[in-house]
Amino acid sequence: MQPIIELRNVVKVYSSPAGDYEALHGINLEIYPGEFFGILGKSGAGKSTLLNMITGVDRLTSGEVIVRARGREVSVHTLGENALALWRGRTIGVVYQSFQLLPMLNLLQNVMLPMDLCGDYHPRRSRERALELLRRVELEEHAFKPPAFISGGQQQRVAIARALANDPPILVADEPTGSLDSVTADHIFDFFEELVAEGKTIVMVTHDHGLMPRFDRYVRIVDGQLAEDPVEEVAV
């Protein structure tokens, strides 16, 4: 099977007046369709940078990121900004620790927004679909509330529903449970496992080694490099 996401010798250098700083030192990584894939590491290790390389949110310095999805093989960093935005909107759903819902829109509109922007669904259809997605994350009854009126865990579920709006094959999550209490975090995880069972590929970044057992496969990143032994470091 061909990997759905393939990183080839990805290097990222940040330049600052204090000198250049290499955040990623040549990462090679293959993620396969239908995997629940974990990227572990402490903050500052470069795991979010790695995720940004996959989503095309940040430009790489050298190397290549290839995503094979929706019948297309795309070298992410050859896309122009607009093409990238459209491609990402259709191919990768992104979930952040801080939810990133638009505060001035209600939940339904937040979920509809990606469909509105990418134009894959007719406006009426997109409304139905958004309601379906909210039903899936058990928030249908709150559909017309603004994000500030629901809890953090609920907001994250809306963010996931939004990430699924254009039915992308890949879901990318950066510490999605980082701001949640342990019970809520568990729910989110259960939902991710359901999605994987349905065939989505999920890439998730976390610093919480306790989550290791729940991934199909994971890598550990230390100071911008994939660590050799993925297991040892244990939660204190």
């Binding site: 900004e81 607009n82 935005a85 459209l86 927004l113 922007l117 990418c118």
Partner: peptide, 16 residues
Amino acid sequence: MRHIGVIKLIGGRNRQ
């Protein structure tokens, strides 16, 4: 800024 970022993240293009 953040809203614009989110919109672009989920598929919004410059023109939109």
